[in-house]
Design a binder for these strands. Structure first.
Lengths: 341, 341
DNA sequence: GTGAAAGCGCTAACAT
DNA sequence: ATGTTAGCGCTTTCAC
């Protein structure tokens, strides 16, 4: 009988079971300091036999070192964020740091709460989506005394460091491409999300560039909730019947763009000659659609990788005061729906 | 100047700033015990002014209470898991418990590692996908002395508690439906994932039921990696040209099913008369496809909700020894691709 | 209603 | 190469 199965084992249990001091047991379990092979073996055997799982809480308190990196994102349902996470994990896997994810649902109050909660575990760094945060959140991040990387967006002033793309510029580039292709009557569809700042900035960059060319958005439609694919379909149907003279549709994300594409193809619309379409993100899903949708890669994985690298470097005491904003360049893929034959 | 900005604030700082003992400050910050309104106010002001963030590490060590629930899943890219997570979050949001997610990539060794890592933070419970774990993982879970809920699958013996659906039964039901609809030459497409036990069990239930009706899978194809939609398309093209006499295609997930559907429609195949198709999961995406794909709901959100409820109840010291396995019933939606006109 | 003392299970720093 | 001594920042427990 291994005594009370209710009480988790402690270093002391391993120490007694192996006849080695707690301190040496600790050293073996962390591969720290010199320990003779014989002692090491004894300790490892005992630990394994007992099924000892170290208590990181006590360890972290004693060493004031916590190998956690807080990653705060708006949503997991968006596919964009799991991909950023994949980039982060890939980098952290080779270190002793570990990502811990918090989700805000695009709500500033929830962001504040999640951030507070995570900071109270004293992580080694924070990676947080966006540049827009409540004043309280900004204060917490500044006070924390740990590296902070704001990701996805570079249109604004970072608290510390920032890695992403310029969404205004992304909107602008897409607008330029559409104008260059000769389209004139342009409709826009997107999320009804006042709190999705990146979608808003893309829209701004887009409309401003059109305006400079003397073009105004001819029609627009916003949605919220539900299946994005279905919404893309519905909105497109509605817009096409309402404004039959449109020659281009710009969607704020690939999912609704795909819905629109499927709908238009079913209706026998000639793409891209009669109507051109484009979206945003470059999600993998698009590879399987009947036509390659014009879109713009948001560099999701790359953003995750770069952000994680910055945290890692800072934790090694490296580079701090240089380049506080890393701007990546999204690639525009015209696919088969943007340039007229 | 708020002194050294490098050192995080402690209770003591708040104590000094407010002229109240550390103990009382602690009580105020946790709403524990009686504190006069005046004192409470003083403390809250000081804490806010300083920007104090409590140190949960110290708190957890002192109280041996950690409000974390470890959630261990194979992947975030699958969409299935974010939905389970949503169910879990929904329930935990009303409690003081918090989910912490770990990802295993379907690898038992990684599961073991992630589990060890998470248990070392002494969480209040574990929710883990699947019933298949390494012996070491099972031992850890048993030893942990905390509630453990294995989710998604009920075909096996849980360590503690288990919530999910029977994937064997799901495969069987789909087979029965297909047979009842009169299809005879059936092809199967799925992931090349020896470690996805649930997909395997569905396949087993499916083939066994066909076998009982004297039907054997006429053709099959497996894939790995890449865009599932594109893979569904490719595999379907290959299979149709290889086995032109097939009258039904069963896909192990909705994404490849959707790819197959799009391909067949483009080829002018009459669905479901010439060829019927069905998949698995009931993902929201399907709502936007040209045809409503036959599928089976995996009760993802519901599983998350139920699992979280069990953890919460156990943490309140409630119900423990009753029903250790909760089996939910997936609904089959025939959509427009299964029953012949 | 408030405070003082004693740890929680580890690790840093210093012996030996 | 190994052991000893002090805490880490909180909460528990018990006094007042």
């Amino acid at each position: 009988m291994t005594s009370d199965p209710k009480r988790p084992l402690t270093l002391r249990d391993v120490s007694e079971a192996s006849g080695v001091s707690e301190m040496t047991v600790s050293r073996v379990l962390r591969n720290k300091g010199d320990v003779s092979a014989a002692t090491r073996q004894k300790v490892q055997d005992a630990a394994k036999r007992l099924g000892y799982v170290p208590n990181k809480i006590a360890g972290a308190l004693a060493s004031s070192r916590v190998n956690l990196v807080a990653v705060i994102i708006p949503s997991l349902g968006n596919m964009v964020f799991p991909e950023v996470l994949a980039g982060i994990s890939e980098v952290l896997e080779d270190t002793d740091l570990q990502p811990v994810v918090g989700v805000t649902d695009y709500l500033p109050e929830k962001e504040e709460k999640v951030l507070f909660e995570m900071l109270s575990w004293r992580p080694s760094g924070v990676i947080i989506a966006g540049l827009e945060h409540s004043e309280a959140s900004r204060a917490m991040l500044r006070q924390a005394g740990i590296p902070v990387v704001e990701i996805m967006d570079t249109d604004g002033e970072p608290i510390d460091t920032c890695v992403g793309i310029s969404h205004r510029r992304a909107g602008r580039k897409m607008a330029e491409e559409i104008i260059a292709a000769g389209y004139q009557k342009i409709g826009f569809m997107g999320t009804k999300m006042p709190l999705d700042h990146r979608a808003r900035k893309r829209f701004e960059g887009f409309t401003r560039t059109l305006a400079k060319a003397g073009i105004e958005i001819a029609d627009q439609e916003f949605y919220s909730g539900g299946s994005a694919l279905a919404k893309g379909r519905e909105m497109t149907a509605k817009m096409i019947s309402r404004s039959p003279d449109l020659d281009f549709l710009y969607y704020s994300n690939d999912m609704i763009g795909a819905g629109g594409l499927l709908y238009l193809l079913e209706q026998g619309v000639a793409i891209p000659d009669q109507i051109g379409i484009a979206a945003f993100n470059g999600v993998e899903l698009l590879d399987g659609l009947p036509r390659q949708l014009a879109t713009m890669d948001a560099c999701r994985r790359e953003i995750g990788v770069k952000a994680a690298q910055i945290i890692v470097a800072r934790n090694l005491g490296l580079a701090s005061e240089d380049a506080t904003t890393v701007t990546l360049s999204p690639k525009l893929s015209p696919g088969e729906t943007l340039r007229r034959g």
